[in-house]
Computed example of a mutant assay.
Amino acid sequence: MSDFIEGLKKGAKAIKESFGPSRYEVANIKVICPHCKNDIFEDGSAQLNTAGATFLNLDWLNKSATILICTNCGLIQWFMESPEKI
């Protein structure tokens, strides 16, 4: 029974760590802020709007990019390939 409880604790810890700021890599290269050299980021997404799609009210057809926001200085880096948490 204690193995089960320990497993639940480890699972809860892993879930907690999967949210919030983290370290990332893209194309097997660790992402580091070029401004302050921090390596911990919040992630998000941003839509890459085009004038034609916006004019026709078809913004949902545009691609999205993943953004990483430095937790130290706030610099935003954009990525077309989704960064992987490490």
Rank of each mutant, 00 (worst) to 15 (best):
W60Y: 13
K13D: 12
I67N: 02
N49D: 14
F19E: 03
S18N: 11
A14H: 04
G7W: 01
T50D: 15
I40Y: 04
G11S: 13
K9A: 15
C70P: 01
F19D: 02
G44F: 06
L8V: 11
F55A: 15
Y24T: 01
N57L: 11
E81Y: 04
A46N: 07
K30L: 04
L75M: 13
L8H: 07
P83R: 04
I29W: 00
H35S: 10
K30F: 01
E42G: 01
L48I: 14
E84D: 14
A65W: 03
M80H: 10
R23W: 01
S82N: 13
W60M: 06
G74P: 05
D43F: 07
E17M: 12
C73E: 05
S64Q: 08
N57R: 14
E84T: 14
G74K: 11
K13S: 12
W78D: 10
N62L: 05
D43P: 02
C70R: 00
D3T: 09
M80G: 08
K85T: 11
N28K: 14
F19Q: 06
E17S: 15
A65F: 04
V26A: 09
K9N: 11
L68Q: 05
D39H: 10
K10R: 11
E81H: 03
I15S: 13
W78A: 08
M1Y: 09
G44S: 14
I40C: 07
I69N: 06
I69W: 01
Q77A: 13
P21S: 10
